[in-house]
Design a protein around this nucleic acid. Sequence first.
DNA 1: GTCTATAAACCGATAGAC
DNA 2: GTCTATCGGTTTATAGAC
Lengths: 206, 206
Amino acid sequence: MPSAVQRKLSFKQQQLRFREDAILDAVNRLLSLKGFDLMTMDEVASEVGISKASLYKHFESKEELAAASMTRLIDDTLAVAHDLDKGLSPIQRLKAVMRWAVTTHLAGSMPSLPSTRSTIQHALIGYAPYAERVSELTELLGGWILLAQETRDLSPDLPGEVILYTIYARSCDPVSDFLKNGGAFTDDEIVGYVERTCFDGMTGSH
Amino acid sequence: MPSAVQRKLSFKQQQLRFREDAILDAVNRLLSLKGFDLMTMDEVASEVGISKASLYKHFESKEELAAASMTRLIDDTLAVAHDLDKGLSPIQRLKAVMRWAVTTHLAGSMPSLPSTRSTIQHALIGYAPYAERVSELTELLGGWILLAQETRDLSPDLPGEVILYTIYARSCDPVSDFLKNGGAFTDDEIVGYVERTCFDGMTGSH
DNA sequence: GTCTATAAACCGATAGAC
DNA sequence: GTCTATCGGTTTATAGAC
């Protein structure tokens, strides 16, 4: 009997989780498309097919909603990073994660990096689950960067922060958007160019 | 007598020009600080020390105001580009212009690149003076890129658009903001890191 | 041209019925 | 938990006096 009750509760919770996932999907898409400031709660609600009041039953503010969406996005990134082929070297892992991010960005599901100037940045750093995942990801990538510097796959005389921030920034660069908008290249080509210019620069004749 | 009248008109026009320059200074700073969407006309007016209604006597909409500010910014960039030492090679010119842009960005007077997603982007492309200056700058930098590719200072197998967009994007990158926020580096060091990672990448041991 | 005052629209968040 | 309806605040833009 307790198990039957629990199954019922679990089912309701599953429904709840499913709906909240659908909400976060919409938020993720709208965040990528227009950013935090231009995304309205009315839009989110109508995209999901519920009313705005119902939306506020799930998330108590616009900031928390965006933070939950960003947190899930970093969770996805962590999952991708952990599922990489065990045989890959640190530099190959870094490049693989970046390729996934740029590809996701081109597909419209990777919001631009919230700059220091952004409204949402202050809300994000005060949101514990987000800060926690960010430092987890930073630790993972930071370790790979150190290893890649030891093997000279990355310049040892470049501060780790510079490399890390550059990878973060170029993963949701506007460059890929502009190139896609130009229409002259396929998504794969764009991802390749962004990866190559990020890691190898633009000098030399290769 | 006509000259006296003309002088008086010219003086009034000078006053007008001076005030509009002060307005554009404020817009430029606010645009860098918070971006188009979060910048309000009330803020601009109070920063300049005039009322909002007066502001609308000078610029007929928020979009036109932002477009005028961005146009002046590109004019400044063109001036910097034309005033470079005649002895510099194309690649050195590209790097010099980029260093100026990043330095200006760190000083809070270089707005982030309006992405394809942005609200203001649509207003900008419909504003002829802006589009004109952008294509002028693109032509100038594009010529340098071609020359630098011929001398193998830039990779010849990289499309010009990829190089141009990368330089544009990295000139108002959030990376410099993050590094400045960290407080571990001077502005000059930050500019150096951004320039180096942009042109030479992060691989190799140098 | 400058001001005060206000119109018109939009948005985040909530009340209250079901 | 879902809805409709609305509040309170903010923002762009304008009217009208001086």
